[in-house]
Design a protein around this nucleic acid. Sequence first.
DNA 1: CCGGCTAACTTGTCAGGCAAGTTATGACCG
DNA 2: CGGTCATAACTTGCCTGACAAGTTAGCCGG
Lengths: 227, 227
Amino acid sequence: MTVQADIRLPSRVDALAEALLQPILAGDWRPHDRLPSEHALAAQHEVSRAVVREAIARLKSDGYVETRQGKGAFVAAAPGGNAFRLDVEGDTHLLELRALIEADCAALAAERHTAADLTALRAASDAMRDAVAKGGLGLAEDIRFHDVLAEAAHNPALRRFAAFVGRHAREAMQLARLSQLREQNRLVEIEAEHAAIIKAVAARDPVAARAAVQHHIASGLRRHGLS
Amino acid sequence: MTVQADIRLPSRVDALAEALLQPILAGDWRPHDRLPSEHALAAQHEVSRAVVREAIARLKSDGYVETRQGKGAFVAAAPGGNAFRLDVEGDTHLLELRALIEADCAALAAERHTAADLTALRAASDAMRDAVAKGGLGLAEDIRFHDVLAEAAHNPALRRFAAFVGRHAREAMQLARLSQLREQNRLVEIEAEHAAIIKAVAARDPVAARAAVQHHIASGLRRHGLS
DNA sequence: CCGGCTAACTTGTCAGGCAAGTTATGACCG
DNA sequence: CGGTCATAACTTGCCTGACAAGTTAGCCGG
């Protein structure tokens, strides 16, 4: 058997956790339903009880399952309610969600930014221009621009969510299309878009800030050939 | 020892998972740092290796840790990056985030609702009025109204996030103050606010829809004595 | 009929062992 | 001296068996 070094089979624990998750996500097992006992699951899936326990530990951590000693394991009242995930969305919805969140950041930044926030925004925009001038793509600097914008919203929940969605969005955009970013006229566009965002934020105009961010992100999608 | 039936001590697995999570969250263990071996952790924490494995299974599921057979357990590149959580925010930021997300739902609903969406919105608003008329509080119906609004945005990622944030927000609002909702003039307000949201959505006016939702949620906070 | 006890069942934990993968060290050869 | 190979020690992955702690249902006695 030839196996590439980078490809590892899922462990039995991973596979069982996934197998137990599917009926929960599909609604076949509903909130408060009792799962089969550990011994039964071990027999059904031909694994040891230790594997079952570890798989259930994973589902517990994700908030899909709750256990009571002596009683059993049960589908949680709100399955998965501990956490919000972005594994199952199509790219379009994910990218639209990102645009909404970035616009929210911009609108709040417009209302409540500090002088230091503006300074950091301008510095981040300048850093991207500088990186590009040196032959880089400015990706890390563009990310930094968005992080600073989210910071300027002065809401840590929103900032963390913006970072979370941003990471997923970048994966979805499959940066294999990096070469498309090299054209100088596109970078002029980006710079103008950053400047428009900064201008709206500095003017404390949430409507314009929101619109500027949404334009910037929509243009980013076009530049990646995604819209 | 007297223990109330509703209070259970954390299991050793829970306690260890928490103990291992803290240095990661605090930045003491950084991305790619290697955790002590299972045997070492079991000795340090005076538990069996099975407890260690289950605790690490929990952290793996949460995205804080990755393991490689024969090599060890390592802090993940982006700790916790699998999922977004709302466990650590102050209530103000959480409630503000919710207002933003609900407004986003309303704005998208304004742009893309269907006739069935409007029908469902009106039905949900009527259902709340009816529930209140029968002596109930209309809480489930108010939740339903917001769910329908999120559905009318036609973006499943946004809808799921709105539901997630809504659940956390309701917990934060500590519904022990339910009695404040019984006054009839307050319910008249809520009904008027629902109607304003529906009107803006039906008019396909995202700006007005956004504003109507944010007014509704801010008023809700005032009714709960939270602002 | 109700309450108490016990057996069977359940999850929680422990201990020991072996499989599979990794790494470092020592020996050997060119 | 440098490179390669083999082996021992270490690591995670999984199995087995046992007992602790908690739950539930059934039976028996008052």
